[in-house]
């Protein structure tokens, strides 16, 4: 079972910026235990571009598709046997990243 694990940061009250060593160590463990599928940190939402080609002409717009106080700062894809396993890992991840974590199953 695969889960999308979103790391959520808050523009007003951001998490601490010194988490990279802890996150790397956590990633090593995810790999060793067979949970790691993919991981990546994201650039600021200001760097996003939205593309809409549903009409006659493609429209590019500068910025994220929705402006919000909270935003997606990074993500993982995990392999876990069930939600209990994923939630236990996410509990650790939230502490390691000093940020909120959303766990969402893939279909």
């Amino acid at each position: 079972m695969r889960y999308l694990v979103s790391v959520i940061d808050d523009k007003v009250n951001p998490g601490s910026t010194d988490r990279q060593p802890a996150i790397s160590a956590f990633n090593e463990r995810l790999i060793a235990d067979g949970h790691w599928v993919f991981a990546g940190g994201l650039a600021d939402t200001d760097a996003a571009t939205v593309v809409d080609n549903r009409g006659e002409q493609v429209v590019f717009s500068d910025g994220p598709f929705v402006e919000s106080k909270e935003y997606l700062a990074g993500l993982w894809v995990w392999e876990a046997s069930d939600l209990d396993v994923a939630l236990r890992l996410a509990t650790e991840a939230s502490e390691v990243c000093d940020r909120k974590i959303e766990v969402r199953p893939f279909r």
Partner: peptide
């Protein structure tokens, strides 16, 4: 069903 919430008695630590 979608998130696969398990059907079991939780582990001792939980």
């Amino acid at each position: 069903k979608a998130a696969r919430i398990p059907y079991r008695v939780p582990s001792a630590e939980d």
